[in-house]
């Protein structure tokens, strides 16, 4: 167990190092000189030269990489060119909406998908089973911006049940902020519930055919107990995987939703950073999202360990 954690830690360090390298290379790969790109066509040669020095672009590439790594490890991801603030500060102020949106929509997806998935598997071939699969496919194939726009139009603008956009403005309280996340979370949750539903159904179908499920029935318990205690715990293992994957996708998938609902999250931030050629912010977002991904993966694996005693690392 300890050696497993050590191996995982080393693995994580390697991944983070690779991500940092990619982030570094990506900016250097952009055609032309980063400094003049960042400043745009109107900048004078002196301004470009000054920025080159500020960014360390006059140094040899290895030295640049070295100081980039050293700074990143200290938690310094550089200055945002647009905001004139440290990238970490900019990111931190945008992290909450994105992460809460991801968690919130994951909850929505689970609440929709798991009961239907379990029931569809239990009543395989029934009308409910077939309807739920078709609906899930439909939901997955409608782009989330479309669902988002429809919700916004009818539930927010017309009916006024929810705020149509934004995050409540500066100084908004917690409840107010969460109220602004309801529609985005449902939008994103519906799109992602399709995958979880199909996984739950498939994994439940497998498990319901197992010998130990028959044993459970032979013990004289209710069908409810057979399914929810003996089958679901086993079916939960593959479901954990897909939930972990979905969560990681949600963070990056938040881009579209944040744009539709105009949320000040990391998704919106990175889109604007691309438009403004704010390379340090693009770099920083890439690194933070990758780190989140690695973290969620680790949590998923530790959950396995907690659920299934057969898993030995």
């Amino acid at each position: 167990m300890r050696s497993y954690l050590l191996r995982r830690l080393i693995g994580m360090i390697v991944v983070i190092f690779l991500v940092l390298t990619i982030a570094f290379v990506l900016v250097r790969l952009a055609p032309g000189d980063p400094a003049s790109l960042m400043l745009g066509p109107d900048a004078s040669p002196e301004e470009v030269a000054a920025l080159r020095v500020r960014l360390g672009l006059d140094q040899p590439i290895i030295a640049q990489f070295g100081s980039f790594l050293a700074n990143a490890l200290r938690g310094d991801l550089g200055q945002s060119l647009f905001f004139n603030q440290p990238v970490t500060t900019v990111l931190a102020s945008r992290a909450e909406p994105t992460i809460v949106l991801a968690l919130f929509s994951l909850l929505v997806a689970l609440v929709i998908a798991t009961p239907i998935g379990i029931w569809a598997a239990y009543r395989r071939g029934s009308v409910l089973d077939q309807t739920s699969i078709t609906t899930a496919m439909l939901a997955a194939s409608v782009p989330s911006f479309l669902t988002g726009l429809v919700f916004q139009r009818y539930l927010a603008t017309d009916l006024g049940w929810f705020p149509a956009s934004g995050y409540g403005g500066a100084g908004a309280g917690f409840t107010e902020r969460m109220r602004h996340l309801i529609l985005p979370a449902i939008t994103l949750g519906i799109t992602n519930s399709a995958l979880i539903l199909r996984f739950t159904r498939a994994s439940m179908l497998d498990i319901l055919g197992e010998d130990y499920v028959r044993t459970a029935r032979a013990k004289g318990m209710t069908e409810r107990r057979v399914v929810l205690r003996h089958a679901l715990k086993n079916a939960g293992i593959p479901i954990i995987t897909v939930v972990g994957l979905t969560f990681a996708l949600l963070v990056s998938g938040a881009v579209v939703t944040e744009r539709v609902f105009n949320l000040p999250g990391m998704g919106n931030l990175v889109v604007n950073a691309v438009l403004r050629r704010d390379y340090p912010v693009i770099q920083g977002t890439l690194i933070v999202v990758a780190a989140l991904y690695v973290l969620v993966n680790l949590i998923t694996d530790l959950l396995y360990l907690a659920v299934d005693k057969r898993v030995k690392y």
Binding site: D211, K219, N234, D308
Partner: peptide, 19 residues
Amino acid sequence: RGPGISMIFQEPMSSLNPL
């Protein structure tokens, strides 16, 4: 099932719940 009739299955390896 249980107090009236109990059953032992043919497959001991897979008839117990692994979790």
